[in-house]
């Protein structure tokens, strides 16, 4: 399938934005110490988020995990509200309550990013049921890592989604590491997609560093799901270029391996392809890069100038009316 030039442009733009956003976070968190606590980045995995979200409609829902910045930005989240939230500021998308790990963005139909590994899987199946129940054409995408595929909830969720043929896409972002465990150290299957046969549902493996390939595979799975054909397990093979979190020294990841995968950078790959095909000029590329840098600078300025939430707000929204 031919991927339209404007889709490639959309994916490149969101990958550049994510990279610039997270490069800034890395400095703010690790070097300047302005954001305390944990920081989990998706550097090198941007094509999964951008490819998947480029194939979705606005009304589609995504349920994400701890490595969520790319997913949310690709789905269209406002970088300013996201950055302010990561700072813990009142102007953040969750008014400074969720921080980097538990972001929820109603505007882009992303109600839950959970750090409990595998925890989002059954929730996505429920949302998909509700979409079908209401006879809507929307679908739900659950994004999770290879480690989550070892959790019991993975089995419960795929079994149920297949049994009831629900409009859900299970997107496994296999970045070859679950914490400090390499893929072969935590499972004997050659590929997570092999597990699809057990439910059964289509299991598809795609190059997770190739945004147009991810887009194409997602588009196909989305069409199947939206037309009553049930779920797909889509495994995107990619690589975690940074540690599990920014405090992780990555001593267990071979340096040559990291270097090799950095050469396979999904952004460089798409840029090169677009330049070669003549659908992007060097000047346009420079402008895209500059735009994303500016958007991030603006987001950081917005976050830093925003007020902190009032302490009393911590007691709000525990229940529907405060007790």
């Amino acid at each position: 399938m031919k991927v339209p030039a404007e889709k490639k442009m959309e994916m490149l733009r969101s990958m550049l934005l994510t990279r610039a956003f997270e490069d800034a976070l890395q400095v703010l968190c690790q070097i300047q110490g302005k954001i305390p606590g944990m920081m989990i980045l998706c550097t090198g995995q941007e094509a999964v988020a951008s490819g998947v979200c480029a194939a979705l409609q606005n009304e589609d829902f995504i349920i994400s995990n701890h490595r969520s910045h790319g997913h949310l930005l690709a789905k269209g989240a406002d970088p300013k509200a996201l950055m302010a939230e990561i700072y813990g500021k009142r102007t953040g998308c969750n008014k400074g309550k969720s921080g980097t790990l538990h972001l929820a963005v109603p505007e882009v139909n992303a109600p839950c990013t959970t750090t409990v590994v595998g925890g989002g899987l059954p929730i996505s199946v429920g949302v998909a049921f509700a979409q079908k129940y209401r006879k809507e054409s929307a679908v739900t995408v659950c994004l999770f890592g290879d480690g989550a595929a070892d959790e019991g909830s993975f089995h419960e969720s795929l079994n149920l989604a297949s049994l009831w043929q629900l409009p859900v896409l299970f997107v496994c972002e296999n970045n070859l590491y679950a914490g400090a465990q390499r893929f072969e150290e935590h499972t004997r299957v050659k590929s997570i997609a092999d597990r699809a046969a057990g439910y059964p549902m289509p299991g598809v493996v795609v190059d997770g560093n190739d945004a147009p390939a991810v887009y194409t595979a997602t588009l196909r799975a989305r069409e199947t799901a939206a037309n009553g054909g049930g779920p797909t397990l889509l495994e995107c093979r990619t690589y975690r270029c940074r540690g599990h979190g920014e405090a992780d020294p990555q001593h267990y990841q071979p340096k040559e391996e990291i270097a090799l995968w950095k050469q396979r950078c999904p952004i460089l790959k798409l840029e090169k392809e677009m330049l070669q095909k003549g659908i992007l000029s060097a000047e346009e590329l420079e402008k895209l890069r500059e735009d994303s840098r500016k958007a991030v600078q603006e987001a950081v300025r917005f976050a830093e100038e925003s007020p902190w939430p009032d302490v009393a707000e911590a007691f709000q929204d525990v229940y529907v009316s405060d007790l």
Binding site: A128, A130, E156, N159, L160
Partner: peptide, 28 residues
Amino acid sequence: GERVMDTPLAESGIAGFSIGLALYGLRP
């Protein structure tokens, strides 16, 4: 059967699934 669902034996799945239903506006 669409409103009274016999689920597989999967308590965590049932609860998580219900959360998804509720997030989308149903009352499970």
